[in-house]
Design a protein around this nucleic acid. Structure first.
Lengths: 337, 337
DNA sequence: CTGTTAGCGCATTCAC
DNA sequence: GTGAATGCGCTAACAG
């Protein structure tokens, strides 16, 4: 690999017969420059394939044009779709996106954040932060350094902005739908290491108490990995053998897909024998058979909103938290008893 | 937001009563420092919450610790899974990952690359580059500036490293499987704007000529978007109405999923009336009904390999292209005639 | 082992 | 409008 040293402002200045200051001015277009000289500089830039050095510029201006995004993993399309929204919003604002995957591990989540902060990013978005398993002060100290946005995060941390779905509300909608269909034995299927599960679980408990239903909560462990569907299927197969409920509410569509398979495996037909509701409304939910009744989580909107809030916050503007409504998407996995 | 000016080496040096050089040395651990002074410096770092400024360091060393990844989009899990592999490989090497989505658009693909190059990245990975629609010289001029790796790219560009599946081989395996099952009317379902489709199409044409089969190629347009499944379903519905083949080979699992739905919609049962083969082996392919026979594309391996090749290349080591074998995963959507 | 110093490439005063 | 000079925070010689 040949060491083609990149051209600098100095080279351009020499080639154009002007000073470095002038080059800087035409590059940034923030000060008046005589058209003739501007043309000369632009020509020199083209000749030399000059590309401004971001590190130097950012060192000088003490700004950064990159933001960080930390995500538990990419095996659940939920995250991919949210990232898609963030990327779109952020790139159109001229910022770049540094992506880190925490592999569903709170410790790695912290590592990712630290690595990102070291990179001197302008702001940070955490998708489904695992604040339960992370030291209280960790995120608040981060938020003191730079704008921080949580997507679907529930543990309130001072200085952090929140962009979220009303997941508790979504949970209630799903439960009410089942309840109105006559279901009284509703199993709640969740995973570990995500505040989202906790929020939904609390909504489930509250609903059960209000309507005097027996609570039955099953945890499959990791809820966003490659093995999630299998794990959900295996766990639910055992549960169904023990005693089948009339309905299952799942914390995401991956789990729901597993539950669906477990039901088929147990000889139960969906929705005749048992109803199943998912959460997220990822592409998958439309494609499995029967298509899944699920709670839509506005992934794209979530990403765009988070990008918007972060950009505002970076520009020093005051921002407001945003809460989107979850809507129940009725498909073919639920029916009245 | 309060302007807490970050501590610098100078601050740390003062606090610890040493020189900036010493601070730099304990931070980087590349020169011997007396334990006692090291302790003092580390204490000062902790007190001041000192975090080294990456821009300054990279400006000075003329290195960069970020790499870029350009991907057509995130709606096809293929890309998400490849990115997962890259992220893992790259982060363990201490590098950060800048992600850009080209929205399945060659022009945006070029824009993304330009934006990334401006950021002075250490290297660049392009997943499924759209070299057909991009100026010949574009990528070769990029490759002159920095290490460039194509994942599943087929247009040879000097200076670029290649990490790819043998997709032509995979296509042949799939076709042979169908042929041996007695299929003679095999429809080829592809999309546009991806060299991957072209490679597979050529393999299909060659196979058909060799075995004297009638060629039937259907293009659904965009093959990696949210609407891909629908588009495939719609297009195939029309095709099936016209004349049903005995088998369909699809360029990815999304299309295959759409084809499957079209078949059901047309009253054809799979695999009894018609066989369908996908490509990629994304999670989805296992979850739809019936589970899809497909060609595995080693997404995780692909990502890890690309990260490895890029890291080597960045360190100035010579690298070799890698080609992984596609394997046919037999599930329930194919059967002998 | 440790301190002093000279840039890295650029934006920005301040003169002219 | 334009040029000269300064410093952003850090690393890497070079001296001691």
């Amino acid at each position: 690999m040949e060491e083609k040293k990149n051209a600098t402002v100095v080279d351009v200045a020499e080639a154009a017969g002007v000073s470095v200051a002038t080059v800087s001015r035409v590059v940034n277009g923030n000060y008046p420059v005589r058209p003739a000289t501007r043309a000369r500089v632009e020509e020199a830039i083209r000749q030399l394939h000059y590309v401004p050095n971001v590190q130097a510029r950012e060192l000088n201006t003490r700004r950064s044009s990159a933001i960080g995004v930390v995500v538990p993993g990419l095996y659940n399309m939920f995250f991919a779709e949210v990232i898609g929204g963030i990327e779109e919003g952020v790139r159109s604002a001229g910022l770049s996106l540094l992506l880190n995957c925490a592999q569903n591990d709170p410790m790695q989540e912290m590592d990712c954040v630290r690595q990102l902060v070291t990179r001197n990013i302008a702001g940070l978005i955490i998708i489904s932060p695992n604040t339960k398993d992370i030291d209280e002060n960790f995120y608040s100290s981060i938020a003191r350094r730079l704008p921080l946005v949580f997507i679907n995060g529930y543990h309130r941390v001072p200085g952090v902005s929140y962009v979220a779905n009303d997941e508790a509300g979504g949970t209630r909608k799903a439960l009410r739908h089942l309840y109105e269909g006559g279901h009284r034995q509703i199993l709640f299927l969740c995973g570990e290491h995500s505040d989202s599960y906790t929020v939904k679980e609390e909504a489930y408990r509250a609903f059960c108490e209000e309507y005097e239903l027996t609570q039955r909560i099953v945890n499959i462990g990791e809820g966003n990995s490659v093995e999630t569907v299998q794990a959900a299927e295996k766990t639910m197969a055992e549960e169904l053998r023990r005693e089948a409920p009339t309905a299952i509410l799942c914390c995401n569509d991956l789990m729901a897909s597993g539950a669906l398979r477990a039901a088929s495996g147990a000889g139960l037909s969906v929705p005749e024998d048992i109803s199943i509701v998912g959460f997220d409304n990822v592409l998958l939910s439309r494609l499995i058979d029967p298509p899944l009744t699920t709670v839509d989580q506005n992934m794209k909107k979530l990403g765009l909103a988070a990008a918007h809030v972060l950009c505002q916050s970076i520009q020093g503007e005051s921002v407001q938290d945003v809460e989107l409504e979850n809507t129940l998407v009725l498909r073919k996995t639920t029916a009245p008893l």
